[in-house]
Design a protein around this nucleic acid. Structure first.
Lengths: 138, 138
DNA sequence: GTGCTATTTTAGAACAATTCCAATCTAGAA
DNA sequence: TTCTAGATTGGAATTGTTCTAAAATAGCAC
């Protein structure tokens, strides 16, 4: 269980998000949130579910991930063209992205200081994302 | 012509990059670099080329964009899952990303201060990208 | 100019990630 | 138990990108 998990269990979390606690949603919520902070792709989560004998289709994986994002239980991170990562850490924070392995690693927001933020010409700032791309050699 | 364009013309640029100046590469280089800083997708560039009566295939668009990135004439920006943007501004800088329109806007690197950069556990830092996501309403 | 060859371009097939769809199933209320 | 709105499903469709093998071309040598 992660330090950011504010719910007693997956059931309570789904209730709070007003998502009907179905077999699949409960199982996926457990996979996602009972192991600390994670960054998973849809494919990884599907493989994990199948390995854990949870019968779930790819369509449901995508439905569920997007519902969790909409309910602010997950955050989508875009670092790779043609593949989305879903981050169970919804606190304000940043990322290392390791280009060879395709892995992400959290950076707590107080570890990086972003100052002098300019205002956009219109609209409101939704999020400030810092991605530090890391390669294996110079 | 942009303030960052260090070449007299597209031909010279391709020569410097050791890319044979073919009809298509010359035409695409002109579209990309003779209009100031731009952020284009492969599809946009293809549409533009066709509209300008430049016969060029989608495969060549992708080949050319990737060759330009490898030659450091362009930079790839990832802000959207499933779609790459190519940025003609190769100077160190950041971006506003307008979520409704899918548009990018440059932020000069001296407009944002990123301090206290943590070191990655291994590897070397390739780039630090700041994306400010902007929405239309709260 | 002509011929030659390595490089480039091409159309279309293949591919990967994601979304859509219409049929079936199920949670939860009555 | 029955009912129904909402959820899940397999498979087809869609989207963005890459691959492939054949045709075209840049640029050199003559």
């Amino acid at each position: 269980m992660t330090s950011h998990w504010p719910y007693a269990n997956a059931l309570e979390m789904l209730r709070a998000a007003k998502l009907r606690p179905t077999r699949q949603r409960l199982a996926l919520a457990k996979l996602l949130f009972e192991k600390g902070d994670r960054h998973v792709t849809a494919e990884q989560l599907h493989d994990e579910a199948i390995a854990a004998s949870i019968p779930v289709s790819v369509a449901t994986i995508y439905n569920t991930l997007h519902q969790f994002v909409a309910a602010r239980l997950l955050r989508e991170v875009v670092v790779n063209p043609g593949r989305s990562y879903f981050d169970t850490n919804i606190a304000d924070h940043h990322h290392f992205f390791f280009e060879e392995s395709g892995r992400l690693m959290d950076i707590a927001s107080d570890k990086i200081e972003v100052t002098n933020l300019p205002q956009p010409p219109h609209g409101t700032i939704r999020r400030v994302e810092v991605v530090i791309r890391v390669g294996s050699k110079g």
